[in-house]
Design a protein around this nucleic acid. Sequence first.
DNA 1: CATTACGACTTGTCATTACAACAAATTTTA
DNA 2: TAAAATTTGTTGTAATGACAAGTCGTAATG
Lengths: 240, 240
Amino acid sequence: MVDETTYQLPRYRELYEQLRRHIEEGIYGPGDLLPSENELCAVNQVTRPTVRRALDLLANEGYIKKHQGLGSVVQNPPKGIGILSFSGTTSAIGKDNLKTDAIVKPYVMPWPDQFIFDLTDTERESGCIYFERIRYVNEIPVFYDLSYLPNINLPRFTSRNLNNASLFDILREHYRIEIKGGMQYIEAIPATENCQKHLGVDPEKPILKLQRKMETNRLDFFVYSILYCNTEEHSLYGEF
Amino acid sequence: MVDETTYQLPRYRELYEQLRRHIEEGIYGPGDLLPSENELCAVNQVTRPTVRRALDLLANEGYIKKHQGLGSVVQNPPKGIGILSFSGTTSAIGKDNLKTDAIVKPYVMPWPDQFIFDLTDTERESGCIYFERIRYVNEIPVFYDLSYLPNINLPRFTSRNLNNASLFDILREHYRIEIKGGMQYIEAIPATENCQKHLGVDPEKPILKLQRKMETNRLDFFVYSILYCNTEEHSLYGEF
DNA sequence: CATTACGACTTGTCATTACAACAAATTTTA
DNA sequence: TAAAATTTGTTGTAATGACAAGTCGTAATG
């Protein structure tokens, strides 16, 4: 069986990707007005609802602000790491500055006791694939990431190389699993022993802890992760 | 001039509020399917685009999950405080459990040096209205909130009573200012002196710091706030 | 009995049209 | 000259119609 990664993206998604690229490449700079919705319709041969869906995506991620009667204004790129939006950590920082190190390779184990999220019987019975990664921003360890996947229909996953590869990309390309969204709990905690070791911080150093449950296009297939962030140099940002 | 607070909510917003009430009142319980989009169209005398906008709002706030081919499934209410979504802190917890204490009453002062957000010349020149509040959840102080409003066109604001009143409600009812969205930076820090005093925590206790810039329906009018959260008992949650 | 195929129903995408609400520039008016 | 009204262009809301894609139960099939 071939990978067959030629998904047909919806048109509003294509337009979104195109506009996002244009903004990131500086073709539209901060403060600029995007072409009006009607212009975008004419240029791209689509109708306004399609254009508006694309613009809504851009607005939700903070690339633009829409103003009735005025237009869509391109925003300044934010200073922090946009890990709170649906796109993965990788795209939030830019691949150049991000290195990933799989310090614990994926292996199958039972789910932890007192797992914060509720598990279905199917998930509980099949156990989980577990691995740990550290993510470096500009050579400095910022994220310490524990991942939990249900051990269902993921052939050869435990032998894959996760270094410098986005987990989301692997799931999409090899297993046709797309992350659609999710929810997360956020709290501030003192650095645990592992945090001290892997993030190189002192005990009692405040650490941001994110516990996430992500949905996929497979019904009843969720990806879980616990993220410890050292926010001293890089704060996180999000839209709301 | 009279207050004239009779806004005409758009129909998708009305439908959203209605469905949200139904979910919160338990008319639709976790795991239940909402009526199909076509049914909602027929019952409420609107068309599918309108219904879908309402459902999208519910989905973005985690009340439902939509599944193609299946329907809209009502979700379990999350355990944390949903402060990361666009609805204000008040509605995120439920007014019964939330008490607000204005420990520093609003007064006019110049903007702080090194304010984290960029200010326009107009904002900078007119100074800011500043006040501090503590928010209690179940009688325990959880939020320590510093607010900054530009001192533009807000008559009598400094003499208003902010105790047990939502800032957003006051802005909407008396000044016709609606919060439309915003962005925030999140980091974990050791408890500052004021945090220790007002949140009743030890030094070096990890505290969640949120710095927020909120947009309104007034072009170029923003509301700023710095929120310190003790997440030991109540972690924050959000959708993404 | 197990498997497959089909149909009914659901949400997802997209084109089309119309009008309302708002911002900014222009023109008119005082 | 300055203020008010108008015009133009923009995004916001909404109705309508059509088809694609996914889920699930049921009937046909082997």
